[in-house]
């Protein structure tokens, strides 16, 4: 019986008679991964290598495509707009990630308390996340306008404003961050809720016997125990918001002036407005290097497991 299993699950290695069968067996196994591998090679592996290569060429849709060494990178380093876009991207990514890492913790803690209707709130709070950035962008743009926006009307009633949320060069990035918070906080909220449900209740019982009260428990038990998840959320948010494109594209079109240009927005302009593909790939490569550095951070933190 055992030998039947062996033969069917594992090929007989090193046997001359079995070597053809071994290879047929392996080919059958390769067939399972082959469709994925072909698509992976065409649409992921090839373009990564092609981007690296193209970034060393003057690659425009029409005309000759000469090798130009590091000229694209050289041009970027001397390009004011690149530095503006990078600065905006870093500002947006850090601010948005800080908001999306901290605010949902408190919402999740509140929604983890036992009270009637908490599932209704959970459902409601996650909902904006399933909308597309385009819908969110159009609606927010209509709400936040300086002259006709309802938010400024309401602020005017209490004597504030009008505030040019998305038309002011200093306010535009914070406004896009808060819009993104509104849109996306449901996702980290769910992750924190999953983390909270894994904290054993006897820890709270023990603390209560020792005299700890609500806020103390949050400060000294819940948040320290959530620490690995908080780090995980912070790094994954940072990586994803470095790639911001839709918010400036739909809400501000990079403006006012170039105050909400981001790296990917600039890459989009370079490649699909001016058809400078080589220049665009150089931007993508530089952004990839930055993001990979943060991903390595994630692997460092992600590797740790939590012990209670």
């Amino acid at each position: 019986m055992i030998s039947t299993i062996r033969r069917s699950l594992l090929p007989e290695k090193h046997s001359a008679a079995g070597s053809w069968r071994t290879w047929r067996w392996y080919l059958g196994n390769y067939a399972f991964i082959l469709p994925f591998l072909i698509l992976f090679a065409i649409f992921i592996l090839r373009p990564i290598l092609a981007s690296l290569q193209m970034s060393f060429f003057r690659w425009e849709i029409f005309g000759p495509k000469p090798f130009i060494g590091f000229d694209n990178y050289d041009e970027l380093l001397n390009d004011d707009l690149w530095w503006v876009a990078l600065q905006n991207t870093v500002y947006f990514a850090f601010l948005t990630s800080a908001l999306l890492t901290t605010v949902p913790i408190f919402i999740a803690i509140a929604l983890n308390l036992p009270f009637r209707g908490r599932n209704v709130f959970r459902t409601l709070f996650f909902f904006p996340y399933v909308l597309s950035a385009s819908v969110v962008g159009l609606v927010m743009r209509w709400l936040l306008g300086q002259q006709f926006g309802i938010v400024n009307y309401l602020l005017g009633i209490v004597g504030i404003g009008p505030i040019p949320f998305i038309a002011d060069s200093d306010l535009v990035i914070p406004s896009l961050s808060v819009i993104t918070l509104w849109w996306a906080f449901g996702f980290p909220m769910l992750i924190y809720l999953a983390g909270l449900s894994n904290i054993p209740q006897d820890i709270y019982e023990a603390a209560r016997i020792d005299g700890a009260r609500g806020w103390q428990m949050t400060r000294y038990i819940t948040i320290p125990l959530l620490r690995p998840i908080i780090l995980f959320v912070a790094v994954t948010q940072l990586i994803s918001h470095f790639q911001v494109f839709a918010q400036p594209y739909v809400i501000t079109n990079g403006g006012p002036a170039q105050d909400s240009f981001t790296v990917i927005f600039y890459m989009f302009r370079a490649a699909w407005t001016y058809f400078r593909m080589g220049f665009g790939t150089a931007m993508a490569v530089l952004l990839a290097v930055i993001i990979m550095a943060f991903t390595l951070l994630q692997f460092r933190f992600g590797g740790r497991r939590l012990e209670y």
């Binding site: 649409f43 373009p47 993001i291």
Partner: peptide
């Protein structure tokens, strides 16, 4: 390992070559 490694690379880097393809 090669497949998983590409998880580290942001997808925007595929865009221009994939568009041309």
């Amino acid at each position: 390992i090669v497949v998983i490694f590409t998880l580290m690379i942001p997808s925007q880097i595929y865009m221009i070559p994939n568009y041309l393809l």
